[in-house]
Amino acid sequence: MVRWEPGTRERLQAAALELFAERGFEETTAADIAAAVGLSERTFFRHFADKREVLFDGQSRLVDAFLAGLADAPDGTPALDLVAAALRSGADFFPDDRRAWARLRRTVIAQNPALLERERHKMAELAGTLRAALLARGVPEPGATLAAEAGSTVFGVAFGQWIQEDEHRSLAEIESTVLDELRSLSSASQRATT
């Protein structure tokens, strides 16, 4: 019988990602993942509801990080600055040592339409949660929705850049650049209409 070892969840995640990349997501079973780290399939299911959850584990912690940044911003902070605070806090969830894992995860997800749909759903949930938090902070509609959707988009664009092979900037740096680009588009649009 295999004895409990610390880091079981992380070992299962690492093995799963490696197997998904080698064999494909559909071709890899929960039993394969468990066996790769010397555990039983039953142990796998103690940690994850199914093999998809290996790739999407941590969503609630990421959302909590975004919300913490938003909550820490001073009262009266404009909506887009609240989103910037949420983005900075969320970036802490992705230290540079997670970049290779995130890159491989993105490759696995991109090869499976059902996983891509799950990823889109995850981003929509993030935007919805940000919207609710902005409304609770007194940001009126449609500003709350626009700011939340913009924040989700900035995160997605920045994350895509962060996992590029030749990228070395932190996620927070990239998010700041992408958000500045969004602001400049809005400013340019205002100048063009006046």
Score class of each variant (00 low, 15 high):
5 E>C: 01
6 P>N: 06
6 P>I: 01
11 R>T: 04
12 L>E: 05
12 L>G: 03
13 Q>P: 00
15 A>R: 05
17 L>G: 00
21 A>Y: 06
24 G>E: 12
26 E>T: 08
29 T>K: 04
29 T>I: 12
29 T>A: 06
31 A>I: 06
32 D>C: 04
33 I>W: 06
34 A>H: 09
35 A>L: 10
38 G>R: 02
40 S>F: 01
41 E>H: 08
41 E>T: 07
43 T>A: 13
44 F>Y: 12
47 H>S: 07
47 H>I: 04
47 H>N: 14
48 F>S: 03
48 F>M: 06
49 A>W: 00
50 D>T: 05
50 D>W: 13
51 K>L: 03
51 K>V: 00
52 R>V: 10
53 E>H: 12
58 G>F: 01
58 G>T: 01
63 V>H: 04
64 D>G: 10
68 A>F: 01
71 A>E: 14
71 A>K: 13
71 A>I: 06
74 P>F: 12
74 P>V: 13
76 G>I: 12
78 P>Q: 09
82 L>K: 08
83 V>I: 15
84 A>G: 09
87 L>Q: 02
89 S>Y: 07
89 S>D: 11
89 S>E: 09
89 S>V: 08
90 G>F: 02
94 F>L: 02
97 D>W: 13
100 A>F: 02
103 R>D: 05
103 R>W: 00
103 R>G: 07
104 L>M: 13
107 T>S: 15
109 I>V: 15
111 Q>G: 15
111 Q>R: 15
115 L>M: 05
118 R>F: 02
121 H>K: 03
121 H>F: 01
121 H>R: 13
122 K>C: 04
122 K>I: 05
126 L>K: 01
127 A>W: 06
130 L>V: 14
131 R>G: 01
132 A>D: 15
132 A>L: 14
133 A>H: 04
135 L>M: 12
135 L>Y: 10
140 P>E: 14
142 P>I: 14
142 P>A: 15
142 P>V: 14
148 A>K: 09
150 A>N: 08
151 G>W: 10
152 S>E: 10
157 V>L: 15
162 W>K: 03
162 W>E: 11
165 E>S: 11
167 E>V: 13
171 L>W: 00
173 E>I: 01
173 E>T: 11
174 I>A: 06
174 I>N: 03
178 V>H: 03
179 L>K: 05
180 D>V: 10
180 D>L: 09
183 R>V: 13
184 S>Y: 08
184 S>W: 12
185 L>D: 11
186 S>I: 13
194 T>D: 08
